[in-house]
């Protein structure tokens, strides 16, 4: 240490430590306490890499997984949701088909005033001229 730090040099000479102390046997019992803590809280080694890198990345992954499960799993769909689906312009036949027979499906689609396909047919009455009921079914469904 340089000459200019006289007071600090003097203090260090007379009091080499900080003056802090610990409770008796603190260090003797520390290891056991620490191991008990790790065991009681079941703290595992090797954190998940994603959690270390970016916590938000793991959150995004969880959200994506929930979304996938919601939209892909047929189990998650209730009858109400299937009924609601019939009132959207993009009717999913895959969802509807197990619940209705072919004729009921056609009725649902034709009855729906918001249906884009039906709107086109309805706006041009001549289009339906000469078509059988089966032909209309083919136009609407396929």
């Amino acid at each position: 240490m340089k000459e200019e730090f006289n007071i600090l040099n003097q203090i260090k000479k007379e009091n080499p430590d900080t003056g802090f102390s610990v409770p008796d046997h603190y260090f003797d019992s520390f290891d056991d306490q620490m191991m008990s803590l790790i065991e009681s809280k079941k703290i595992s080694t090797g954190k998940k890499v994603v959690m270390i890198l970016k916590p938000w990345l793991s959150l995004a992954a969880i959200f994506t997984l929930i979304t996938l499960v919601y939209y892909v799993s047929p189990i998650s769909k209730t009858n109400n949701q299937i009924a609601d689906a019939s009132f959207t312009t993009e009717v999913s036949l895959e969802y509807l088909s197990p619940s209705f027979d072919e004729y009921e499906l056609i009725d649902i689609i034709i009855d729906n005033e918001n249906n884009a396909i039906f709107d086109n047919i309805n706006s041009d009455p001549n289009l339906l001229e000469g078509l059988t009921y089966e032909d209309i079914e083919d136009i609407v469904i396929f």
Binding site: F20, V22, P23, Y26, F30, Q33, M34, L37, I38, I43, S44, T45, G46, K47, I52
Partner: peptide
């Protein structure tokens, strides 16, 4: 303070335990 030092020392060893293998 000793109380804070004890807390921090425990947290430090928890972090070491969790990350030492990497």
């Amino acid at each position: 303070t000793h109380e804070d030092a004890d807390d921090v020392l425990q947290n430090t060893f928890v972090k070491i335990w969790q990350n030492l293998d990497s």
